[in-house]
């Protein structure tokens, strides 16, 4: 997904250069390195002094979505971002995050470590869009810390995965918090590794994790999704894969770990192929085989 007007995004970085930052009144948007120097309290959220990345501190209600855009535009560009977002108590915010390569063959590298803190009663809808070139290496590693009664909706969509994608997500769920994860990845020739981990450590915390993965061409997809409950809580895993091409490989591992007798954890998982009957049906409506597959895949990713 391309940002329509990139100049209006609140944090815009191309390769290793920050192109633009737009402040939102009452809130703070800074390069991570600057935040490290300016605010002592942020140091506990970083392992070491960050070199690049963004710091977004939402202290005041923002009515329109916050937008960040990280691009790779030069051949062999290498990014190593450390991002931090803090949503203060009771604030509700929506954030659109776009990470993409401008070209299809730049052989870039995009590593991002992010920490997102949702203070008590806050709410975050985090829409994360990835679009990469066929030879890029991408490794996002995000940790969401959900304090009491906070709400998270995390939508990750990758319609153009890179050569290598390693996606790690950890959610620490505090008391009464809820999280909803939706991962959609449509792999062509990529090697995709996914590790999702939700820790339901808070009383009455809830999580629903939904994966929709499509394997096309020579793609290899391996996903491990874990929900572990340490307190009375509820979690559900829904992992569905669709293998479209004969050479594509996919492995889904849903894992439930229950350490509390009052926790309720459930899962459903399946890997299937495109039904010949559906394909024939759409071809009898005049769609070519390729058009029919694309329509079925698009539908599957929306379910």
């Amino acid at each position: 997904m391309a940002m329509k007007n990139v100049k209006n995004v609140h944090f815009w970085q191309v390769d290793n250069k920050i192109k633009n930052i737009i402040q939102v009144p009452g809130n703070v948007i800074l390069p991570s390195a600057q935040a490290w120097r300016k605010f002592n309290w942020v140091k506990k959220y970083f392992d070491k002094e960050p070199k690049e990345g963004y710091f977004i501190w939402i202290k005041k209600q923002v009515d329109s979505p916050l937008a960040t855009c990280i691009n790779i535009a030069s051949p062999k560009a290498s990014q190593n971002l450390t991002n931090l977002m803090v949503v203060e108590k009771g604030i509700k915010v929506k954030s659109n995050v776009i990470c993409s390569a401008i070209g299809n063959n730049l052989c870039g590298s995009h590593r991002a470590r992010g920490k997102l803190i949702l203070k008590s009663g806050s709410s975050l809808e985090y829409n994360h869009f990835h679009q990469w070139g066929q030879n890029d290496f991408v490794s996002p590693d995000y940790e969401f810390i959900l304090e009491k009664n906070s709400r998270l909706i995390y939508n990750y969509k990758n319609s153009f995965p890179p050569k290598n994608l390693l996606l790690k997500t950890i959610i620490q769920s505090g008391e009464g918090s809820s999280s909803n994860l939706n991962l959609v990845i449509n792999s062509l020739n990529s090697k995709v590794g996914i590790l999702e981990n939700v820790n339901l450590s808070g009383l009455n915390s809830q999580a629903v994790m939904k994966l929709r993965l499509v394997g096309r061409e020579n793609s290899q997809t391996e996903a491990v999704s874990v929900i572990s409950a340490k307190s009375p809580s509820r979690g559900h895993l829904d992992c569905q894969g669709l293998v479209v091409s004969p050479k594509a490989k996919m492995s889904l591992t849903p894992r439930l770990i229950c350490q509390n007798k009052d926790a309720q954890l459930t899962h459903e998982a399946s890997i299937g192929k495109i039904s010949e009957e559906e394909l024939t049906y759409l071809r009898m409506r005049g769609l070519t085989e390729k058009e029919a597959i694309n329509l079925i895949v698009a539908g599957f990713l929306k379910t």
């Binding site: 039904s275 009957e277 559906e278 049906y281 759409l282 329509l295 079925i296 698009a298 539908g299 599957f300 990713l301 929306k302 379910t303």
Partner: peptide
Amino acid sequence: MPPTIKGV
């Protein structure tokens, strides 16, 4: 008995 096309 037409097939279902989920999500479309």
